[in-house]
């Protein structure tokens, strides 16, 4: 099987996770991950990073109300 370095794997990790790599390349990635605990840790942490971005602003989504001042400013700008 073709060899892959940690550098190459990490460079293409987004493509790997997005399912954007051809099957034969995925097999090479999977083989590397089966023998490299450092890259497994990197991959897990990378996945957690994506999760962190998604949840970082979660409280905002429900909590933001439009301040009355802004509502009035928008309504006033309607006729301009």
């Amino acid at each position: 099987m073709t060899k892959l370095t940690c550098h190459e794997l990490i460079d293409f990790l987004s493509d790997y996770l997005d399912g954007a790599l051809p099957d034969e390349t995925v097999a090479v990635f999977d083989h590397h991950l089966s023998i490299c605990p450092d890259c497994v840790a990197y991959l897990d942490n990378f996945r957690a990073t994506l999760q962190a971005t998604k949840t970082a602003f979660a409280p905002d989504a429900a909590a933001t109300n439009v301040p009355e001042e802004l509502v009035q400013a928008i309504l006033a700008s309607r006729g301009k």
Binding site: T5, H7, Y42
Partner: peptide
Amino acid sequence: YLDDGHQARPVPRW
């Protein structure tokens, strides 16, 4: 990375 392509400063899994 090191010259051989390994991570220079691998970190533990979170």
